[in-house]
C-alpha cells in the first residue's frame, strides 16, 4: 500500500486505511455506485440487528416471566411441587363451569415453587460428564498434538472429532439408551446415564479446544525442557499442559455450558424425580428436562415453573460461558 507513504496517518488500522481509500475516491463516485456501496453496508449492519433483536426480545420475555420465582429462596431449597397439575386443575374455573370440578381443594397459593432437585441434578450430571470427558479429551488432544502430529491416524482422528461435534445430541441419548437403559430397565435411568450421554457430547469439543491450545504452546518451551533431559511425558505434564492451561480450562467450560443446556440426550435416560437426589443412581432431573416436562404439563403453575427453570438455566449457562471467555482473554498466550 504505497498510498501510506505519501500521507501516513499514525499507525492506521486496516479498516481506517480502507476508509481513507474509499472515502478519498468517494467524492468522484457516480451516484449509483456510491448508493450500492452504502446500501450494502447498511444491509450488513441490518442483518446483525435482525438477529440480535429476537435475542434481546427473548431475554426480556424469559426474565419477565421467570425471574419472580427464582428470586425467592424457596426456589433453591424446596422440592419441585408434584401436584402442580392437580392444583392447576383445581384452580381452573373453566373446568368447574363445564362440570368437571375436581372437587379438590388444593390452593394454588399454598404450592411452594421449588426447583432444587433440578438444579442439583443439572450440576450432578454435568459434573459426572466432565469427570469422564475432560481428562479423556485432554489426553486425546495430547496424543494428537504431541505424538500423532500430522500422521495419518492423528489426521483421521482429528477429522472424525470435527465430524463428531456435528453429530446431533439426541443421537448420544439414543446411544446411551441402547447400551445402558434398555439392558437395565427402569433402574437404568439415572443421573449417571445422563452423564454418559453428555460426556459423549463434550468429548470432541474438549479434544479440539485443547489441541488448539497445545498447538499455541511455543516449541521452544518443549525443546528447553527436552534439553534438560526431561522425558516427553514429563515435559507434557509439567511444561506443555500448564502453559496451555488457561485455554484448556476455557474450552472445557464452554463444553460444560453446552452440556448443561442440553435436553435431548438427557430427557429419556434420566428418569424422573421431584425430590433432590444426590446420587448418580436412581431417577433424577435437570433444569432443561424440567422446562420441557413442565411445558408439557401446561397449567399456569407448571408454566411458571418452566419459565423459572429457563431463567436459572440461562443464568448458569451464560455465567459459565462468560467466565470461559474472560479466562481465554485474560490468560491468552501470545
Amino acid at each position: 500500500m504505497t498510498d501510506l507513504q505519501t500521507a501516513p496517518p499514525p499507525a492506521p488500522s486496516r479498516s481506517e486505511t480502507f476508509e481513507a481509500l474509499t472515502g478519498g475516491v468517494g467524492s468522484t463516485l457516480s451516484g449509483g455506485r456510491r448508493f450500492k456501496d452504502g446500501f450494502s453496508s447498511v444491509l450488513f449492519a441490518l442483518s446483525f440487528l435482525l438477529v440480535t433483536a429476537p435475542l434481546l426480545w427473548m431475554f426480556w420475555d424469559v426474565l419477565r416471566q421467570g425471574l419472580e420465582p427464582v428470586l425467592n429462596l424457596d426456589w433453591w431449597t424446596e422440592p419441585i411441587p408434584g401436584d402442580v397439575v392437580r392444583s392447576d386443575l383445581a384452580g381452573n374455573a373453566d373446568l368447574s363451569d363445564l362440570g368437571f370440578d375436581t372437587g379438590e381443594t388444593v390452593d394454588s397459593d399454598s404450592v411452594t415453587l421449588g426447583m432444587q432437585p433440578a438444579i442439583v441434578g443439572t450440576i450432578l450430571t454435568v459434573l459426572g460428564a466432565s469427570l469422564l470427558a475432560i481428562p479423556l479429551g485432554i489426553l486425546g488432544a495430547v496424543y494428537l498434538n504431541e505424538y500423532g502430529k500430522k500422521g495419518r491416524l492423528a489426521s483421521f482422528i482429528r477429522f472424525m472429532t470435527d465430524v463428531m461435534t456435528g453429530v446431533p445430541s439426541v443421537i448420544m441419548g439414543v446411544f446411551i439408551y441402547t447400551i445402558w437403559v434398555i439392558p437395565r430397565g427402569v433402574s437404568g435411568r439415572s443421573a449417571w446415564a445422563a452423564s454418559l450421554a453428555l460426556a459423549c457430547l463434550m468429548l470432541p469439543i474438549v479434544v479440539r479446544a485443547t489441541e488448539e491450545m497445545l498447538r499455541l504452546v511455543p516449541d521452544s518451551l518443549r525443546e528447553a525442557s527436552a534439553a534438560l533431559g526431561t522425558r516427553t511425558w514429563k515435559t507434557t505434564i509439567t511444561v506443555t499442559i500448564p502453559a496451555a492451561m488457561a485455554g484448556i480450562v476455557s474450552g472445557s467450560l464452554l463444553a460444560v455450558a453446552r452440556a448443561a443446556g442440553e435436553t435431548a440426550p438427557v430427557l429419556f435416560v434420566i428418569g424422573f424425580t421431584t425430590a433432590t437426589n444426590l446420587s448418580f443412581q436412581g431417577g433424577n432431573t435437570t433444569l432443561s428436562a424440567q422446562i420441557y416436562s413442565q411445558q408439557q404439563n401446561g397449567g399456569p403453575l407448571a408454566t411458571q415453573l418452566a419459565w423459572g427453570a429457563a431463567v436459572t438455566l440461562i443464568g448458569i449457562v451464560l455465567v459459565t460461558t462468560l467466565v470461559a471467555r474472560w479466562i481465554a482473554k485474560r490468560y491468552t498466550i501470545d
Binding site: M58, E262, L318
Partner: peptide, 21 residues
C-alpha cells in the same frame, strides 16, 4: 460476543419462548 452468546442459549429455551410468545 453477542453472536457467540446466542450459540450458548439452550435449545429448550428457544423452544418455550417460541411456543408461548
Amino acid at each position: 460476543t453477542v453472536i457467540d452468546l446466542m450459540a450458548a442459549v439452550p435449545s429448550v429455551v428457544f423452544g418455550i419462548w417460541a411456543f408461548y410468545n
